[in-house]
């Protein structure tokens, strides 16, 4: 943590233009009440959403409260399908440290069946095939590798179902 060095040759009077001062900070995050329940379920291969007590909309993934109405969700959980519809997408050709996929890859906003919010994830499909309204399903890690982690879902993959009608998902773009 204390390592630092400077560029500019000593004694030659040239200005120091670079100073490296690495910063390492450790944080211990807690998932929170709602996310804990969601993570325990995903360790069993189940996707749990929560219902807003004001308008009944189903949030997935849930952060424990409704951002629109500022109310904490109750204990009611809604079990969701791992199938859904691509609402919109992008093909990414820029590397990112937290996405260990080969370029290019497809990011998708998926509306899971039974959910009223979108899930951002990645899609394993032919780049020329992907389109809005495409039906997809989650591909899971082998069951023995499941943990309390969202990484249990590797990616989504297209399934052989007819495209969803634009009107059925357009308000989620």
């Amino acid at each position: 943590m204390n390592a630092h060095d400077t560029s500019g040759t000593e004694g030659d009077g040239s200005p120091v233009t670079v100073l490296r001062a690495p910063i390492v900070l450790e944080y211990e995050y807690s998932a929170g009440q709602s996310a804990s329940r969601f993570l325990r379920a995903i360790a069993e291969g189940r996707l749990l959403g929560q219902r807003c007590p004001v308008d009944g909309r189903v949030y997935f993934p849930s952060r424990g409260s409704c951002p629109q109405h500022a109310v904490t969700f109750g204990d009611e959980v809604v079990e969701l399908s791992d199938k859904g519809t691509i609402v919109t997408f992008s093909i990414v050709r820029v590397p990112s440290k937290n996405i260990p996929l080969e370029l290019p890859y497809i990011t998708v906003n998926v509306l899971l069946d039974g959910a009223d919010t979108i899930l951002m994830h990645v899609l394993d499909a032919d780049l020329d095939d992907v389109h809005m309204g495409m039906r997809v399903q989650a591909v899971w890690k082998p069951r023995e590798e499941w943990t309390t982690s969202t990484e249990n879902i590797l990616f989504f993959r297209p399934i052989d179902e007819p495209d969803a009608d634009y009107d059925s998902y357009k308000e989620h773009i």
């Binding site: 995050y29 993570l39 609402v87 992008s90 990011t107 951002m120 809005m132 634009y166 773009i173």
Partner: peptide, 26 residues
């Protein structure tokens, strides 16, 4: 990448590109 979140977005471009696609469609 904060634990427990679904961090599958690559920077601001990864977030906004799907919205641009939505605009083009509309």
């Amino acid at each position: 990448s904060v634990p427990f979140s679904l961090a599958t977005v690559a920077g601001a471009g990864g977030y906004f590109a799907p919205l641009v696609r939505g605009y083009i469609r509309r």
